[in-house]
Each structure stands twice: as structure tokens, then as C-alpha cells.
Amino acid sequence: MSQFFTVSVLVATLATAIKFAVPYLLAALGETIGQRSGVLNLGVDGTMLLGAFGGYYTVIQTGSHLQGILVGLGIGLAVGIVYAYVTVFLHAQQGISGIGIFLFGLGFSDLLFQELVGTPKPIRPLPTLDKLPGVGRIFEPLVDIDIVGPLLFDHNLMTYMAFLLVPATTWLLMKTTFGMNVRAVGENPQAADSLGVSVAKTRFIAILIGSSLAGIAGATLSLQLAIFQHNLTNGIGFIAVALVYFGAWRPRWVMAGALLYGLVTATRIRWQSLDIIPQGASDIAAMAPAIITILALVLLASRVRGPAALTRPFSRH
């Protein structure tokens, strides 16, 4: 109890929250782009699982984290092509197609794991900034700075990439012609079509970006945890989809949602480990992230409207 709310506890909790939020954030940013174009992808979790296995297996084989992440991206891209083809060109119903991708990812990642690896075998986790070969010593002194050090400099590269992707996604959506097209086809595809914007092409690319990020998110997860297992994601992809709604389709609010989710989880774990939360309250505490997310959804849902054409396939007549 002596550690009750000391600065170091709060800093550690926040740092855990940031790390925990990374796979959620990567996947949710990707889903944001897809949904802005009017396509809901419920297959994020399955894509993440495939990316997670691909990344993990690559590291087992090559020892290269970078290659692991790239393989995750490649797998996400490949799954994205399938999903985009089915939903954009074949006009398949998006909800059920996404569930299909999820189930495929869940089953196929496990099958590959059983066939190629078998028993879970730990790998080297993603190195934090100060452990990076070559440039690590620049950051090494920074890690030891009070508060700021553990909060900002004690993370792995993917954490920085995920958070840098927040302004990058905003920029892509708000400041580029592609982003403008994405927003237009997600809101009023007929209007975009009447001005010569290809709805199919725009949505196709948006889905590919989203799915690639889901693949990266999966690879980041398995490399961060340094392990792969059946259903490693445990529903992270679905929470990422919920975070897009939570964040009202705006990258920085999606980030806020991911951080909130991470913070609530980290608080529960950290504080339980310090007995700040009593053992008896652990069940209730475990529900907190879900409850807070649902509350936020309920409160926000009435205020913010999503892309008007979300889940609606487009055809000319």
C-alpha cells in the first residue's frame, strides 16, 4: 500500500498502456481508412492472426524482426486483395465476408502453426529503442531520465511507428486527393462517381492499406510477445473495429480510444499487482475495458454519424 499512487506507479501504468495499445492502434487506424471509404472489415482479427504467425515464423527462420514485420505487411496485403475483390467487385455483403476472413485467419494461422512449428517456441522480443543496434546509444541516456524516460523512450520501434501513423493517417485522409476520394466514396459514392472518381479503385486501395496495417498489427503483437499461439490476438481485431466507432472515424480519437483501452487494462493489471485493487474485485476490474468502451460508444454514437455509405456496396444503377 505504500506504493499507492506514487509517481513511479503512474508512470509505469502509463508506459504499459502505451505499449499495450500499439497493436490495437495499428489495426484500428487501418480499419479507419477502410471504413472511411465505406467498407467495414470484420476480418481484422483474422488478418492479424495470419500476420502474427507470418511475422513469428519469419523471425524463427531468419532472426530478423524487420523481415517479420514486412511479412506481416505482405500477408495483410494479400488478405486485403481477397477481401477487396469479394466486397468491391463481387458486391458481397461486407459483414459476413469479414467474418469469413476472420474464421479463415483463425483456423489457417493455427493450422500453419501446428504444421510448421508445433510447440510454442519463444523468439527474441522486439528490442526497445535503447537496444537498437547502432543507434541505441543515442537513446540509452534518455531512458534513464525521470518520468519522461520510461514514458517516451523505453519502447520498441513499432510503438513509435504506430503513433506516427496517427498524424500520417489524418494527413492522408484530409490533405491528399486520395484521402478526399476516400471520404467522398464513403459518404456519397454516386457523387464521387459522377465526377469521375473510381469508387471501386478508391475502395480497393483503402481496403489494401487497412488490411496491410492489420497484418503489421498482428506481426507487431507476436514479435512484441515473442510467441505465437492458437488465437493469439484474443479478439484484438474486433476491439480495433469498435475503437473506430469509438473514435468517430477520426485518427486522433481512435488513438485516444486505444490509449484509454490500454490504460484501463494496464491500470487493472498494475494496480492489482500492487494490491491497490483488492483481489475480490478482479472480476469487475477485468470487465472495465469492455464496459468503458461500451459506455463511450453509447454516449458518442448519438452524437457522431459515421460514413453514410458504410457497408453499402456501390454499383451504378
Binding site: 486527393t177 484521402g179 478526399m180 459518404e187 456519397n188 454516386q190 457523387a191 464521387a192 472518381v197 453514410a308
Partner: peptide, 30 residues
């Protein structure tokens, strides 16, 4: 053509609606 049912994207600005589908002077950036 000005359609009876307006071909406008409600969440985009006037300028964005006008620019939609046209190449930008700045390439990828609007």
C-alpha cells in the same frame, strides 16, 4: 449537369466537393 438529387458529399467542404475528381496542382496533395 446539376442533378435533381444533388451529387454532393455532405461531410466535405465546398472546395473539396468542387475539387473532387480533378487532378491537383500539387500532385498527391490537395
Amino acid at each position: 449537369m446539376v442533378h435533381q438529387h444533388f451529387m454532393l458529399v455532405p461531410t466535405l467542404t465546398v472546395a473539396e466537393n468542387v475539387a473532387l475528381g480533378l487532378p491537383s496542382n500539387r500532385g498527391f496533395r490537395t
